[in-house]
């Protein structure tokens, strides 16, 4: 078997452990403390933000303009698809004219 196969296999096992691990640890506790509960409620925003922030900081005017467009559309009540398509349009437009 090739190196790629073993890397993939080991990477898959460890990835699965991260996906079930949090639950396995937490399910050992009968009751979840309110602070833990509040922390877990913050998980989506906390994790997903870290996937955007460095990209935004590294980005040029086109990237920043695309993200700002997305924020404005969300604040105006737009859903995921309008947000995604408008931001992508701004990005592609600016990248091609700047």
């Amino acid at each position: 078997m090739s190196t790629i196969f073993w890397i993939t296999l080991a990477g898959a096992v460890l990835t699965y452990l991260t996906r079930i691990g949090g639950h396995l640890v937490l399910s050992r506790f009968e009751r979840i403390h309110p602070r833990v509960e509040a922390g877990l409620d913050a998980v989506p925003a906390a994790v997903l933000t870290t996937l955007v922030a460095p990209a935004a900081m590294e980005g040029g005017p086109a990237e920043v303009a695309a993200l700002v467009t997305g924020v404005l559309i969300a604040l105006a009540g737009g859903g995921m698809m309008p947000l995604f398509l408008s931001s992508a349009a701004v990005l592609i437009l600016l990248r091609n004219i700047l």
Partner: peptide, 27 residues
Amino acid sequence: FLLPIYFLGLVMSFRKRAMWLPVVGVS
């Protein structure tokens, strides 16, 4: 850059949650 845009959309979709802005800012 499509994925950062998509993740931004997800972040925005949780903005009604308690402490959303401080959580996003600190993260």
